[in-house]
Design a protein around this nucleic acid. Structure first.
Length: 126
DNA sequence: GTTGTGACATCGC
DNA sequence: CGCGATGCCACAA
């Protein structure tokens, strides 16, 4: 093991796998996604906290068709500026996600974990 | 080996 | 609240 192992590639699949777990009508942000997922081994947590979001974006750059990439939005609760931004908005609305002024209410649609372990913190949500 | 670019987040004005 | 600029990683040519 010299240099960087294929761990990065594994992280990519990890991101896609998480996105696949996202239920319909729910969205996730790059930042929270990077924090929810486990960072690659040998990576500094500090840098991961800063650039983890970008790695997620890079991973989504090659996201397979079986990955609901359209359910991934940025911290702003808005759709990233991509070639399919318009299409993504339609897909989200088609799934029941309401866009307030082009922005998604993360408090309502931001999804956490498969079992909602993170959501169990209070239960104020539905 | 070097250069360029990027599906983000954060700070400042 | 909107826009501009910044930071540094990894990957592709």
């Amino acid at each position: 093991m010299d240099t960087i192992p294929p761990n990065m590639q594994v992280y990519y699949e990890l991101v896609w796998q998480f996105v696949r777990q996202v239920p319909t009508g729910r969205v996730v942000t790059y930042g929270q996604l990077s924090q929810t997922l486990t960072p690659p081994d040998g990576t500094d947590p500090a840098q991961y906290a800063i650039y983890g979001s970008r790695w997620v974006g890079s991973a989504m750059a090659a996201c397979p068709e079986d990955v609901p990439w359209h359910r991934v939005v940025n911290s702003q609760g808005k759709i990233s500026q991509r070639q399919g931004a318009e299409v993504q908005r339609v897909l989200l609305e088609d799934e029941g996600v309401l866009l307030a002024k082009g922005k998604i209410d993360l408090k309502m649609y931001q999804w956490h974990g498969p079992d909602g372990t993170e959501v169990a913190r209070q239960g104020r949500l539905f």
